[in-house]
Design a protein around this nucleic acid. Sequence first.
RNA 1: GUGGUCGUAGCUCAGCUGGUAGAGCACCUGGUUGUGGUCCAGGAGGUCGCGGGUUCAAGCCCCGUCGGUCACCCCA
Length: 439
Amino acid sequence: MPRPQPLSGFPELLPRQRIVEQQVVDHLRRAFELHGFANVQTRAVEQMDQLLRKGETSKEVYVLRRLQADSGGGDAGLGLHFDLTVPFARYVLENAGKLNFPFRRYQIQQVWRGERPQEGRFREFWQADIDIVDRDELPAHYEVEIPLVIADALRGLPLPPVRMHVNNRKLCQGFYQGLGIDDTDEALRIIDKLDKVGPEAVQKLLIDQVEATPEQAEACLKLAEISSEDTSFVDRVKALGVTDPLLEEGLGELAAVVEAAADQAPGLVVADLKIARGLDYYTGTVYETVLEGHEQLGSICSGGRYDTLASDGKNTYPGVGISIGVSRLLVPLLSSGALDATREVPTCVLVALADEDGRGEANALARRLRERGVPTQVSPSAAKFGKQIKFADKRGIPFVLFPGEEHQIKDIRSGEQTPVDVDSWEPPAEDLHPRIVAP
RNA sequence: GUGGUCGUAGCUCAGCUGGUAGAGCACCUGGUUGUGGUCCAGGAGGUCGCGGGUUCAAGCCCCGUCGGUCACCCCA
């Protein structure tokens, strides 16, 4: 059989890269739990009609089909989930009677989308999602809280600085309807393309597709140009002279988010009135996050407020949430070498072997180290010591223990070798486990 | 799904107007009779993505196909 080729869009990491991914996920998990989010896992599949509720994305859904299924029957109604928000909305409805509201949960799982892969775009990838849902009413302060949790979660990871662009759907829709544009959803989608196609093209689209007058299109562009790190955007919007109750509401909510973020996570959030998000179920604040220096990746963390996604007709459960695209964030940094692990195995100590008869003693020494939490393995063979050291070196294992009448431990980076008491020896804290480094 | 572009050693790549397949790094052995990394000497490793065609002769030209990659669409 010829050597299998990688399947594009389904990234598989090497062990040292996986160490980075694993530690990032552990870090996110700790951060989310520090903020009181409970964990939930949902099944990989959903009913197709659940998945299709989100509209356009439907054609990207991987449908489940049993190989032997009769052409007419089978599991035709199932598909793999393409995000964690839709399954969560379903989960909330299904378990509403057993959950306590407001309910905050985090969920870190793989999702699948049948897209054409590109840098930072995959067909199977990890998302780390947080959401807060309440029954009937969701206070606006949760829209303020979400960016602060993300700021905490990303803090402490050796990543380039991130910048979260925040907008509010009510603000834009209020502005458009105050202006006299009817199809505000379509206007949002067009404005979202501004960075890609430029102002002239956007103006033309607005005129052609939502029947805006040139003056209305001009005003939409003026609004989209506004961005600020503080609440000064409010006055700039008001200076455009459009009045609408929904616009006022959106301005107030966005100002609250920006103000709290400027206070508690300076430099993280910028109000950016051209952010729209393609998805149509967002009803308030929307978030989009770029890695500085890696803007071409697109948003590595997006979300927003949705008031009607989870509703059984009798009760509604409005929510706000955001998803970190773990794979989008990490895979490009890993393959470019911008992120790496200090070693490719968990092993901290390799116990050397003078001869095969010594394996029993070596195993016992290894066990004593493991009992105190030091990851240890025994050399695969009693090769020349030079080879055993090389075995450790190639994997990045920092220490080699030589058993003998007096055991000795060697730090193979410095070459320093000293007698050691295996029941009290501790490696430096930074060597006990592999760490993430940004070379 | 549409369009561009690229497939040669584990990796990065060279390969002239078509004439028997190359380098660097990595790997293995020895120099080094039990402590690696440097150095030196040697060695191994290729159905040139796959299939067909043109030709005395194809890595190179033609057709097809598969895969990678980029852009569009959309999005984490």
